[in-house]
Amino acid sequence: METVFGWLHVANWVEFWWVVVGLGGQLLFTARFLVQWIASERAGRSVVPLAFWYFSIAGGAVLFAYAVYRKDPVFILGQSMGLFIYLRNLWLIREERRNA
């Protein structure tokens, strides 16, 4: 196992799947920038679409789970703060739409 997945620095299948989960979370997190870029290009100005916040929450939640698994306090703190901010932005958008 170590020789096949040595470049991933994994020791067993559990570790391998957690690395896959972490990479998946990073891909979700990266997708938010692509969504924002495409929406801005289409609008001809800088915009932050609703999907940006959903990708942020999805990617942040998966990365938070990965950080907890890795027992990395710096990574855990960073992702937990981000999740709070993303959820708060969605709440503000919801309130704005309700009041409109």
Rank of each mutant, 00 (worst) to 15 (best):
F64V: 04
I57M: 10
F64I: 06
Y54S: 09
G59D: 06
S40V: 06
I57E: 05
I57D: 04
Y54K: 11
Y54N: 11
S40T: 00
L50I: 14
W53T: 08
S40A: 02
A58S: 11
V48C: 07
K71Q: 15
R45L: 03
A67T: 13
P49E: 06
I38A: 07
G44L: 03
A43Y: 00
L77P: 05
S56A: 11
F64W: 13
F64K: 08
P49V: 00
R42T: 02
F55C: 14
I76H: 14
G59P: 04
I76L: 02
S56E: 00
Y69G: 02
D72T: 08
R45P: 00
Q36S: 02
V47S: 05
I76C: 07
L34T: 09
V35R: 06
D72Q: 04
P49M: 12
I76V: 12
F33T: 07
V68M: 14
A31W: 13
V35Q: 10
Q36K: 03
F33S: 06
A43D: 04
G59I: 02
A65L: 13
L50M: 12
K71D: 15
R70I: 13
I57G: 07
F33A: 03
F75M: 05
I76P: 02
W37T: 01
R32G: 03
Y54M: 01
A58Y: 06
A67R: 14
V62Y: 02
A67V: 11
V47Q: 12
G59W: 05
Y54D: 11
D72Y: 01
S46N: 07
S40L: 05
S56M: 08
A43I: 01
A39I: 00
V48Q: 08
A43L: 02
F55R: 10
Y54Q: 13
L63N: 14
F55W: 15
L63T: 12
A67E: 05
A39F: 05
F33D: 04
L63K: 09
W37K: 09
Y54F: 12
A43K: 03
L34S: 04
A43Q: 08
F64A: 07
L77S: 15
P73Q: 06
V62Q: 04
F33P: 01
V47T: 07
A51L: 12
G60M: 08
R45N: 02
A65R: 00
R32F: 01
I38K: 09
V48Y: 04
A39C: 03
A67G: 09
W37V: 06
E41M: 01
A39K: 04
A43F: 00
S46P: 00
V35H: 06
